[in-house]
Simulated assay, not measured.
Amino acid sequence: MTVMTTPLGAMSQRGPSVLWNDSADPSELAESISFGAVGATCNPVIALAAIRADLPRWTARIKELAEELPEATESEIGWKVVEEVSLDAAKLLEPAFERYNGYNGRLSMQTDPRLARSATKLADQAVYFSSLAKNIIVKVPAIETGVAAIEDATYRGVSINVTVSFTVAQAVATGEAIERGLKRREAEGLDTATMGPVVTIMVGRLDDWMKDCFNRAKLAFDPGYLEWAGVAAFKKAYAEFQARGLRARLLSAAFRNTMHWSEFVGGNVVISPPFSWQKRIQNSDLTAEDRMDVPVNPQIVDTLYAQLPEFRQAYDVDGLTPAQFIEFGATRKTLRQFLGADEELDHIVRDILIPAP
């Protein structure tokens, strides 16, 4: 494979930071692979966008599925389409999967957010999704039920991608859950060498929540500091993972600015920009420089910490308990968005199967 010698290509060639594409759209993923991408992610919002981007194809397929599965609900048909979208993308990543022995080359499928209240149902669906292709990695949310599901599914051989995760506390709790699952497998002589778990921090969504809190509290410090909240939390979590010997890699997602790439280069991490951001980075004069170990300006961190209680929750290792993860504002906003995408997919299926008169 030839990797383009541009900012993302340079990062991919120097290692250990790797690029994943934050989209399952096959045309976007193919071009991202030319930039050096060795993985990709999907979630209800991304899957919905991929379906809409090729609606004639998926309209025909939804009609076929309705005939093949005459008793299936709208939701069940919609999720079968999500499976097929994901598997199309997974095929493109098989060469990277073989090259990296399972550490990369994976396509992320996300568990149904409507199952979030049940650790058992999340883990069981994760095992099912993992069985669909050898290079599937499964997203489970960083909430209290998710922590239990993550350990269980990891023990059962699923490579996990933690999602709906914004804080150091969520990252550490889920990273430790993965570690417990890996150790349980190893204690029974089961394989872990070909697994590739990651823990996502949705850095841009944390920034978004800090901006909401800043405005609600009518604060007046430099608003540019808010662009650093996700970066600071990610770097703090990375240091914690290193200190604790956690084997899962951190993954940077939910891009809002180029720092969500440039500040993490040099770390043993996954960087997963949306394709539009990859294009912007590729067309820039930015260079890939090792900055993972460069701390955020202490004045910025101290200001955020002193004036925003929500940043303290996000930044401190013990800022939230697992029971509180679902109460964090960014968690609630994101889960609701994913649930909304589920509902929209149901409506697409309904409009195809029962068109309005």
Rank of each mutant, 00 (worst) to 15 (best):
6 T>M: 05
10 A>P: 00
15 G>L: 15
16 P>H: 03
19 L>H: 09
19 L>F: 08
27 S>K: 15
33 I>H: 09
34 S>Q: 09
41 T>K: 06
53 A>Q: 08
54 D>A: 14
61 R>H: 10
62 I>G: 11
74 E>F: 04
75 S>P: 00
75 S>D: 14
80 K>A: 15
82 V>H: 10
84 E>L: 04
85 V>L: 02
87 L>S: 04
89 A>C: 09
90 A>F: 00
99 R>A: 15
102 G>W: 03
104 N>V: 01
105 G>H: 06
108 S>Y: 04
108 S>F: 02
111 T>I: 15
115 L>D: 14
119 A>P: 07
125 Q>P: 01
126 A>S: 05
128 Y>G: 01
129 F>H: 03
129 F>D: 01
132 L>V: 01
133 A>G: 04
136 I>V: 13
138 V>R: 02
141 P>N: 06
149 A>Y: 11
151 E>I: 00
152 D>W: 09
159 S>R: 02
160 I>E: 11
161 N>A: 11
168 V>A: 11
173 A>W: 04
174 T>G: 06
175 G>C: 09
177 A>T: 10
178 I>W: 09
178 I>A: 07
180 R>D: 04
181 G>F: 03
182 L>I: 03
185 R>F: 08
187 A>R: 02
187 A>I: 04
187 A>T: 01
188 E>N: 07
191 D>V: 13
193 A>S: 15
201 I>W: 11
202 M>R: 08
203 V>R: 02
205 R>K: 14
205 R>E: 12
206 L>H: 10
207 D>S: 05
208 D>T: 07
214 F>L: 07
215 N>G: 05
215 N>K: 08
220 A>V: 01
222 D>N: 14
230 G>D: 12
231 V>Q: 10
233 A>I: 12
234 F>K: 01
241 F>N: 07
243 A>S: 14
244 R>P: 11
245 G>M: 12
253 A>C: 13
254 A>F: 06
255 F>Q: 03
265 V>C: 11
266 G>L: 07
267 G>A: 08
274 P>E: 11
275 F>S: 08
279 K>V: 13
284 S>Y: 12
284 S>F: 09
286 L>V: 10
288 A>G: 10
288 A>Q: 03
298 P>S: 10
300 I>D: 01
301 V>D: 05
302 D>W: 13
310 E>L: 14
314 A>W: 13
316 D>K: 15
319 G>V: 03
324 Q>P: 00
326 I>W: 03
328 F>W: 06
328 F>D: 03
333 K>F: 07
334 T>V: 12
337 Q>K: 13
341 A>Q: 08
348 I>W: 05
350 R>L: 04
351 D>Y: 00
351 D>Q: 09
352 I>Q: 02
357 P>F: 12
